[in-house]
């Protein structure tokens, strides 16, 4: 059984059929890139994995545990955080500095955990304080790993796009998700800033992170991925190792797509 199993995900927005049965499997430590032309449901697929959309049909299993559809009774509130998400336009919290952006979710998680224990009053406050200090250490390490040790106290509006996206990556790593998803992480960036973000993603791959990356950076996808998923019309048109997809695509749609992007580049 594979680490991540996505089976037959279907998603419609009213009459628009966006995903018509997407299935794939993935092992821990693998990196997949999702390519395809605009409007083919790449973002929607990531959003279904992260429960930002509820798939109409299908099943998602991670590490042998079914996380979608949720078991009856317990559902809805709170995301199990098996997946992390890095958005195209960062979505950092503007009122928090880089460090606080990263610690926020960790601190809330600590609160929930400590509230669930019977300890009260001063003891609870002491444990919370301890947890917060620990979280801050973790956050500092994460920010250092994305090369922002000097920007911890800066607010998002004081950071460049590339720096903001790196904070967003650190924030997504904070809860150590099993699988990290990126939705066009460099599309909103000036060309000279994409490099620093791609470098961080590459570094995460070398650390053995499991990642799904939706991107238009063909060269990058080729270098970083174990497998390429090519999507067309709401299904996976073709999937395989980068060299197979790029050099010997079987499907005509895939060939056309790469022929077109080559001309563009």
């Amino acid at each position: 059984m594979a680490f991540l199993e996505v089976k037959n995900i279907v998603k419609n927005f009213g009459e628009t059929k966006v995903l018509r049965g997407v299935s794939f499997e993935m092992e821990q430590g693998e990196v997949f890139s999702v390519l395809g032309s605009s409007g083919n449901g790449k973002t929607t697929l990531l959003r279904c994995l992260n429960f930002l959309e509820t798939a109409d049909e299908g099943e998602i299993t991670v590490g042998g545990k079914r996380i979608f559809p949720p078991e009856k009774g317990k559902a809805k509130e709170g995301n199990p955080c098996t997946f992390g998400m890095v958005f195209q336009n960062f979505n950092l919290f503007p009122q928090y500095n880089a460090l606080q952006n990263v610690t926020l979710a960790m601190n809330i998680k600590s609160q929930n955990e400590i509230k669930a224990t019977p300890c009260k009053g001063a003891e609870r406050r002491r444990r919370l304080k301890e947890a917060y200090a620990q979280n801050e250490e973790t956050a500092k390490e994460l920010l250092a790993r994305v090369g922002l040790e000097n920007k911890m106290k800066n607010y998002p509006c004081e950071l460049s796009g590339g720096q903001q996206q790196r904070v967003a990556i650190a924030r997504a790593l904070a809860l150590s998700p099993d699988i990290l998803c990126f939705d066009e992480p460099t599309s909103a960036l000036d060309p000279e800033l994409t490099g620093e973000v791609l470098k961080v993603i590459k570094q995460l791959r070398d650390e053995g992170r499991t990642m799904i990356i939706v991107t238009h950076e063909i060269e990058f996808a080729k270098n970083v991925s174990d497998k390429i998923i090519f999507m067309a019309d709401g299904v996976i048109e073709e999937m395989g190792a980068p060299e197979d997809i790029f050099e010997h695509a079987k499907s005509e749609k895939t060939q056309n797509f790469f022929a077109k992007t080559e001309v563009e580049q």
Binding site: L52, G78, L175
Partner: peptide, 12 residues
């Protein structure tokens, strides 16, 4: 996006 970023971080 602010709501979505919070949601994927597990916030209610």
């Amino acid at each position: 996006g602010q709501y979505e970023a919070g949601k994927v971080l597990g916030l209610t």
